[in-house]
Design a protein around this nucleic acid. Structure first.
Lengths: 134, 134
DNA sequence: CTGGATCCTTTTCGATACTG
DNA sequence: CAGTATCGAAAAGGATCCAG
């Protein structure tokens, strides 16, 4: 191991299992997704919703994105999808216990955002002002 | 993020101020961003890093995205950027207290992901198997 | 060393039309 | 009702070149 370059010498690699790293990044980027967040919230609040109800509750979501997001959540085990074989079709969605626990874990970030929104907005004003002045 | 209550279940709209909602979604989607997360982590671990050091620590990030992400974080008050007017230029980055508190808030999700990664991977296997069979 | 500017590829997403 | 399939616009992201 050469230490010839002093710039690199003190850079310690991030001491996190890369597999965990990748999974966490994956999960968080999914949960952080606009629609995933809102669906998680909607199901947390209402318990169980049908496809169209869920879409209306979330609001402003295209049917494509609703299907896609809800399928992804099902794949990750966050949502339980139940098909009732009747005519017309009846499908409902509810959070699994895994999905509920994720919602709870995410509360910390949610609360953080609420608590610090003034600081963030202030920081943006400061930044904007500083940027204008150069 | 309350539990479903049958008595209020027909009050459909999500009981969150849409402005707060939008800001929270904005903040979270930024923090959830792949590069933002890794930069937050890198600065949490190393305290202060210069531009190039930060890029190497994060790993695999283009100069464009590094600049862009770090600027966004500065604008949101998560990162302090200090320019030393020397030649060659010397700029270092460190987390603000706001950035540190965000990192802490995020720990909950991080821990969740570590604790539940087996469940997630199992859910994906189940889903994949169910999908193949139709 | 730190980044701005530009080009170009990939990905994302909404709108639309169609099906069991 | 609950989707699937497809198309085009738009945004994100990487590579490259250039400058203070």
């Amino acid at each position: 191991m050469s230490k010839a370059n002093p710039l690199v010498q003190n850079i310690v690699p991030l001491a996190v299992d890369p597999q965990i790293e990748a999974l966490v990044r994956d999960i968080i980027s999914k949960v952080a997704d606009k629609w995933t967040m809102l669906i998680l919230e909607a199901l947390e609040e209402h318990g169980t919703l049908r496809f169209t109800q869920l879409g209306r509750t979330v609001g402003g979501i295209s049917q494509k994105m609703l299907t896609q997001t809800v399928r992804q959540m099902e794949e990750d085990g966050l949502v339980q999808r139940t098909v009732h074989p009747v005519i017309p079709p009846h499908v409902d969605y509810t959070l699994t216990s895994l999905g509920q626990s994720l919602g709870e874990a995410f509360c910390g970030v949610w609360i953080w955002a609420e608590e610090h929104r003034d600081e963030i907005e202030e920081a943006r004003r400061v930044f904007a002002a500083a940027t204008r002045k150069g």
